[in-house]
Computed example of a mutant assay.
Amino acid sequence: MKIHLCLLLLAAGISAAPHMSSMAELLTLLQQMSEATTKDMQNLRIETPDNIDDVNCISTIFEGTEQLKTSPAMKKFSVFFQKFERLKQSLTPSLAKEGQCDTERKNAAIFIEKLMTFIRKASKNARA
């Protein structure tokens, strides 16, 4: 019985490891993206949630990521956008209907910082 339980826990840990690894990879790529933000990118204004913890703002985050993806300066970060798209389903809580989200148009650097916070919190929730 003990061996069976150990094998189940090991299997659960192995299946969670790629998800955590992907989150860490996303954060690394976002950090590089943040550092590479040029003055041209500062002119890009993205609808950014005031409160990143508000579950009503998740679709706003995804819409902002899509807008960021269309920027020519972000082409070299296509790997991030591909990986983020794959994890999008696991990051989206099952909400019947999203409510009101308070947002403000902010520059790309601020949006990227908020996106990093969102992914960090999502990875902590996945571990819990």
Rank of each mutant, 00 (worst) to 15 (best):
S21L: 12
I58S: 01
A12S: 11
S34I: 01
D54L: 03
I110E: 12
A126G: 04
G64K: 04
E85M: 05
P49F: 05
T103R: 00
T92E: 13
A16Q: 15
E98C: 05
N51I: 03
R86G: 06
S15R: 14
F81P: 01
L7D: 12
T103V: 13
F77Y: 14
L27N: 04
G64T: 03
L115T: 02
T92M: 15
M1K: 14
E113A: 15
N43A: 11
T103G: 08
T117Y: 12
T117P: 01
P18E: 10
C57S: 07
I3L: 15
L29G: 00
A12W: 05
L91D: 11
A108N: 06
A16C: 15
L27V: 07
Q42W: 08
L95M: 14
M23P: 00
L29W: 00
E25G: 10
V55W: 04
S22Q: 06
T65Q: 00
L29N: 05
F77R: 04
A11W: 03
F80M: 01
R105G: 00
F111P: 02
L95W: 02
T65K: 01
S90C: 14
T38C: 07
Q31I: 03
T70S: 10
I61F: 03
I14H: 04
L9E: 07
F62K: 04
M33H: 03
I58V: 13
E85C: 01
R105M: 08
P93E: 07
M1Y: 02
S15C: 14
Q31H: 10
C57D: 03
T48A: 02
Q100L: 03
T92A: 11
N125I: 08
C6A: 09
R127T: 06
C57P: 05
V55A: 08
C57Q: 02
G99I: 00
S15Y: 09
E35I: 11
Q32M: 09
M33F: 02
T37I: 13
V79Q: 13
S78V: 08
Q42K: 12
C101L: 06
S123M: 14
L95C: 11
S71K: 02
A17N: 01
S59P: 12
D54H: 00
L9K: 07
K69R: 15
L91S: 09
F62A: 08
L115V: 02
L91G: 12
T92I: 06
M116P: 05
D102M: 07
D102E: 11
L8D: 04
L10S: 14
A12T: 07
S22V: 07
I110F: 01
K69W: 00
E47L: 13
K83I: 09
F80I: 02
S71M: 09
E66R: 09
L10H: 03
E63S: 08
D40Y: 13
F77Q: 01
C6F: 08
M74L: 12
Q100V: 01
H19F: 06
L8G: 03
G13I: 04
A24C: 06
H19E: 13
K2T: 07
I14R: 07
F118M: 00
T70A: 12
V55F: 10
L30K: 06
